[in-house]
Design a protein around this nucleic acid. Sequence first.
RNA 1: GUGAGUAUAGUACAAUGGUAGUACGUUGGUUUGUGGCACCAAUCAUUAGAGUUCGAUUCUCUAUGCUCACA
Length: 371
Amino acid sequence: MKSNYFDYELIHTCKKTGARAGLLHTPHGDIETPIFMPVGTHSTVKMLTNEQIKSTGAQIILSNSYHLYLRPGHKLIEEFGGIHGWMNWDKPVLTDSGGFQVFSLAKNRKISEDGVEFRDTKDGTKHFISPEKSMEIQQSIGADIIMAFDECSPYPCDYKTAKSAMDRTHRWLKRCIESKHNDKQALFPIVQGAFFEDLRKESANFVTQFDSVGFAIGGLSVGEPHDIMNKFTKLTTSLLPQNKPRYLMGVGTTEDLLDGIINGVDMFDCVLPTRNARHGSFFTHEGRKIIKNKEFERDNLPLDPLCDCYACRNHSRAYIRHLFRQNEGTALTLLSIHNIQFLINLVKRARIAILNDEYDTFYNEVYKNLR
RNA sequence: GUGAGUAUAGUACAAUGGUAGUACGUUGGUUUGUGGCACCAAUCAUUAGAGUUCGAUUCUCUAUGCUCACA
């Protein structure tokens, strides 16, 4: 899995906290870590144009191979030059393997050793995704970073189920590696093992036998309490090599990013900034707020007075509240821009603090203001 | 002016001789590798008066408002 197209430099480790700042080189440019990656499941970050995504400072976006396989089809995307040509996006892209849909679409799928049979909830058609199929899809789509096809177990989860999902994830990882042929793509293995220390250790041991560009931590942020998530994040990063980026999948909130970074994570993705935007809530340095609320009826402040995103530079809370209440799509765009840029600015500032060996101060300052 | 119809939540509509529902609105909340403006909860009403009845928002009468038709 050695590649000339990827390289990770661990630039600095905060002397006080162990938080990491790095640089990940990819075929479509460099990514400064720690990084937050916005999610664009259907090859668009919902409600945003590429220009708007870039305005938030996003360096890489996520997409989803399962959803793109269903519509419009990975072969069609390949005809358009892969995801970069398809959506005219020239920066790095990461695709999830469809593994998370094994978890999130649990009612509509059947798992076997060979793979997973999904039933499309839109038209009822059945689709079989194996590790080989997921690799075929992800190689057609052509993202820079692609993910192993895994089985993410739920919370809570008994030991037997967790172990069986983990073992299967390991066997599937081997099959993913064997069917990967393009060295312009980096395949990230995923550590599973649910909420059992010995399984997490076993899983980390297993996946790190392969020389991958980076490693992902899966199976967290699935409904467990925060302290449990933090405990297992910390445990897992301690088992991963120092000279590789660690990607904590599906995280998260302001607090989760702060905690993830202090626990040695380099990469995050989450649907929250965009989903929260569509549902009317926004991040601020004082915590999350809800734009619908009456307290903002005559509020002339921007969403967050400390934010310099497009929405905050141009519009008041009162105006955006009005747009949201009238079901005007612009409200969702403005809130999405803000929420994404808020998290990206957060990790940017974290990076500076790390380089100055002051991440502990930064961490405490930001936490103190959150309600 | 005459006749007919009608009156239930902020709005639009249900239902019922014994517990008055829905939608939207309003107020608050949820959301973590996206099943694309979602979900959850709270709040808010029988026009007024008289009669029949054990009991009337419901049936009867009167008043008032509104709608339509005719003058």
